[in-house]
Nucleic acid binder design. Structure first.
Lengths: 199, 199
DNA sequence: TTGCAAACTGTACACCGTCCAGTTAAATTG
DNA sequence: CAATTTAACTGGACGGTGTACAGTTTGCAA
């Protein structure tokens, strides 16, 4: 923990994983504003610059951490019996996970939902389910984005405001999310061919 | 423009409106990152502290400016013949205005869409139109929020990313917004009993 | 004419991300 | 084994940020 206990050249024995883990801890403990390169370095007992041996920039670090959050999302199997129920479950899980990290949500939005491995994986599952639900191929991409916008956007509205005040009760926002998801699914699947046998 | 040309006590003759106007100009010229208390003061030829005579904090200033942006939204009359078309027009105008201020969108999100006079006004019109479209009274609030989430969220996805790169072509995002809006309107106006969303 | 609130400056605090120039330990090579 | 390269790490700095405190001066009201 002492940063004065080591001179230049002396190693602290860090790994990239250490840095990312510490970043997540800091985030969980004090929210986004508790995560600065300096506070992170302080916690690792290291000079701020050291972090740049493991991470190109704070942006890259944030991207990594954000995608890690998406690992918590519980995705249904792509061949789950009822695709529409699967979509609903997937989006609801995404929304719930985001709710667990309120101040990350605006950061997510600013990055269009992150582009890491987990994001890609979830996106592919969603696409598959949409196709299986009979959504026209030309509509799949738009439907995916609309659903993601709804999940992240709803989560953003549930997050604490600038003054730490919470303008809407979380239960209300969740009800709104669920309702909106239902509406969207009605609209998206309206006039689509039945899932049938050939798919 | 010279900050050294005036000693303590000498007045610059500013008004609150001057400050807000300069803030909007700065924003229009260089985006959100060009608007700092210091750059604003520099432009007004004044010391940074001076601004705190007109504004409680940067947050308050931002709130004011954000609500001002919403004044650009073209809202239909509340008694327009076709309420559903009215909702569509209102949301599309909102979306378009937001697109014109890309880097403000994340700020909007972080503030749950601003709470100023213009936001309230638009919200009331939207509520009226929803009721006239036959939406159940108990659903009006949720429908309003879902629509707002969709508009702001879609705009956020169209905004430039962290590296200034634009991952999606604006035309595509607009198509996605329009499509999603259509789906939502179908769902919202499709009877008042809850649809089969398994969430 | 006096008094006072409001407008304004100087200075400072505590941060921020990140760059540059070292120093030293470990890994690699001969 | 010795020599050399590479990677981890520090000190210090640069140029920014929002904003608090204490002091000056101005214009207006009493």
């Amino acid at each position: 923990m002492r940063s004065t206990s080591r001179g230049p050249g002396q190693r602290a024995g860090l790994t990239r994983a250490d840095v990312l883990t510490a970043a997540r801890t800091l985030l969980a403990e004090g929210g986004i504003e508790a995560l600065s390169m300096r506070s992170l370095a302080r916690r690792l007992g290291v000079a701020p610059n050291t972090l740049y041996s493991y991470v190109r920039s704070k942006t890259e670090l944030l991207d990594e951490v954000l995608d890690g959050v998406l690992a918590e999302v519980h995705a249904p199997e792509a061949d789950t019996p009822d695709p529409v129920a699967g979509i609903s479950a997937l989006m609801t899980s995404t929304y719930t996970v985001l709710l667990g990290h309120p101040d990350l949500v605006p950061v997510f939005l600013a990055r269009q939902g992150a582009r890491g491995a987990n994001a890609v994986r979830l996106g592919e599952i969603l696409d598959t389910l949409l196709r299986r639900a009979g959504v026209d191929e030309s509509d799949v991409g738009q439907a995916r984005r609309v659903l993601i916008v709804h999940a992240i956007g709803s989560a953003a509205f549930a997050a604490v405001g600038p003054d730490g005040e919470r303008p809407l009760a979380p239960a209300d926002v969740t009800a709104q999310f669920t309702r909106g998801l239902g509406w969207l699914l009605v609209g998206i699947t309206a006039g689509s061919s039945p899932p049938g046998g050939a798919g």
